[in-house]
Simulated scan of single mutants.
Amino acid sequence: MSAIEILDLSNNRLSGTVINTTFSIGNQLIIIKLDGNKLEGKVPPSLINCEYLEFLDLSNNELNDTFPKWLGGLPHLQILKLTSNKFYGPIRTKNLFAQIRVIDLSSNGFSGVLPVSLFQNFQAMKIIGENSETREYVADIYSYYYTNSLIVTTKGLDHELPRVLTTQIIIDLSRNRFEGCIPSIIGDLVGLRTLNLSHNVLEGHIPESLQHLSVLESLDLSSNKLGGEISQQLVSLTSLEVLNLSHNHLFGCIPKGNQFNTFENNSYQGNDGLRGLPPSRDCGRDDRVPQETIPVELDQEEEDSPLISWQGVLMGYGCGLVIGVSVIYIMWSTQYPAWFSRIHAY
Rank of each mutant, 00 (worst) to 15 (best):
L105H: 00
A139M: 03
S218E: 06
S10A: 13
S46I: 01
L14V: 01
R13I: 05
F178E: 05
K86G: 11
N12T: 07
M125S: 06
L71W: 13
P90F: 05
G228E: 04
D35S: 14
D158L: 14
S231V: 02
T147W: 07
E40R: 07
V296Y: 15
L9K: 05
E264W: 02
T83L: 10
A139P: 02
S143N: 13
P183W: 09
V242S: 15
L96W: 06
D65C: 01
H205F: 08
K94M: 08
I169L: 15
V289C: 02
K38G: 12
N64I: 06
G36V: 03
S24W: 04
S309E: 11
N108L: 03
S46V: 01
E130I: 09
I32F: 09
F23E: 00
E297Q: 12
L63S: 04
Y346A: 10
L245A: 05
L34I: 00
F23V: 00
S15F: 09
I31M: 07
G187K: 08
E62K: 13
P278H: 01
D282V: 03
D35C: 06
Y142Q: 11
L189S: 04
K94G: 06
L39C: 01
I127N: 09
C283V: 00
L195I: 07
H249W: 07
Q335S: 14
S239R: 06
D287I: 00
H344R: 15
L245E: 01
D286E: 13
L71Q: 08
N266M: 06
Y88S: 12
H205Q: 12
I19V: 11
